[in-house]
Nucleic acid binder design. Structure first.
Lengths: 245, 245
DNA sequence: TGTAAGGTATTACGTAACGTGAAAGTCAAA
DNA sequence: TTTGACTTTCACGTTACGTAATACCTTACA
């Protein structure tokens, strides 16, 4: 059942180093490790890897993939449907490109005219529609989830959240590693854990990262004070690292 | 007619930085520059860029692309035909992948069985057939060209080549930058220029690089002595750099 | 004719996603 | 028990750019 690293690598056609790397950045860690430290991958790991590779196929950065699949509202089946849609769009783009080659050939033989713009139809790197769409879809889900969480809180809890934000905003120009900041961020951590089940330290750090990575979070948070999102991200990162021992 | 860097970048949908970079590594340099140092791209430059992007589309490293398009036997029309073939193969692979998603969906619903191998059909990173094929095709052309050149030489010239190789092999353990090595490499440079039209210093350097990049060259050259290809590459690179002023 | 906006050049450091050893421990078969 | 194929963890290298920073150029417009 459990596979070792090379077995998995060979099966899916990627390198051992890639699996090591995915483990290193916490994108895909083996379900267990043997006594001697060997990575042992389960069938669940394998399915997750498939999802990751689908995301990667549409050129999504690993950081973002990590966000999406670790988002609690991530649904495998829905993801597959989305992948399907993206891949179909990618094929459309590829068809355009194939058409462009064909036209270029004719153009070269002098059979047809071709504008400069037409010569590059189908390349479209800048605003690849499927990339944007995927990012939006999965990003939206994270935002929605977060909003729903806050909306579902009691009025008292909402007030507590607001107070924590205000306090953090008032000290946002000090060091994120200062005692004061770390104490305030601990309140935030405890608040999250009280209201939404348990947040692991890693998840907490990841959440902080999202505050700066996703514009919509940044915008919301920075309403309490300019640069607060960045400050919280740093403070949360430090908090997670410092409390691991 | 002549376009400035942003105009071209916007037209094809890549960044200005990318064009700067391509200039920097000598992959695509503008046909002329204005008095104030602005890059001015011609229509030929634009067509070359199209070729480059086609190569890039099948994930070919820029170094290799540079080899191929600067190879004197590079034929635009033939290249387009080849691109067409590759892109069609790529679409086939994409179809496989789309099929895999569909099957995975059904598998998830419990409608069908699926082996682990099937779950990764269509990803095929390791030995993407079109990449290999392209590499082989264009690599072969370079080798063929080289062989044809040598074969077309007079017997005396062939003997001269052999002597230069032998001499180089005998000193291959000294520094490639030593006077002795540089003198011998100058002989090689002059020999090439005498027999096959003019080789620019850049082309000479590129040729040396190919000696180590392409196994077939390495193998041939190293028959005169182990490590000779690497030695020649270094010596040729230094020769080109040193003689630019 | 001046000036402000936007393009451009060069330099230089940063980044993502691994590749590529090196050194040392592990495992199974012969 | 020895060999050969795997595995681990550093740790540095690489590709193809991204991202400032700084300074100069060009052009429309007042």
């Amino acid at each position: 059942m459990a596979m070792r690293v090379k077995e998995l690598a060979d099966l899916v056609g990627i390198s051992v180093r890639t699996l090591h790397y995915y483990d290193e950045i916490g994108l895909l860690s083996p379900e267990e490790t043997s006594d001697s430290g060997y990575r042992l991958y389960s069938n669940d790991n394998l399915e997750m890897l498939q999802q990751i590779l689908f995301f990667r196929e549409i050129d999504m950065p690993l950081k973002e993939i990590k966000h999406f699949i670790s988002c609690s509202s991530f649904d495998k089946q829905e993801a597959l449907l989305q992948h399907q849609k993206m891949l179909l769009e990618k094929r459309n783009q590829l068809d355009k490109l194939i058409n462009t080659v064909g036209k270029s050939l004719k153009h070269m033989k002098g059979e047809i005219q071709m504008t400069n713009k037409e010569k590059f139809e189908g390349f479209d790197f800048s605003q690849n529609p499927y990339e944007q769409e995927a990012r939006k879809l999965w990003g939206d889900k994270a935002v929605d989830e977060s909003n729903a969480k806050v909306a579902g809180m009691s009025k008292e809890a909402q007030k507590a959240v607001s107070e924590i934000y205000t306090k953090l905003a008032s000290i946002r120009n000090s060091s994120p590693e200062s005692e004061e900041a770390q104490a305030a961020i601990k309140e935030w951590y405890d608040c999250l854990n009280q209201n939404f089940g348990t947040y692991s330290l890693d998840a907490f750090k990841g959440l902080g990262q999202m505050y700066v990575d996703d514009q919509r979070f940044t915008k919301n948070i920075d309403q309490y004070g300019d640069g607060l999102a960045k400050f919280m991200c740093d403070a949360m990162g430090h908090f997670a690292d410092a409390n691991k021992n």
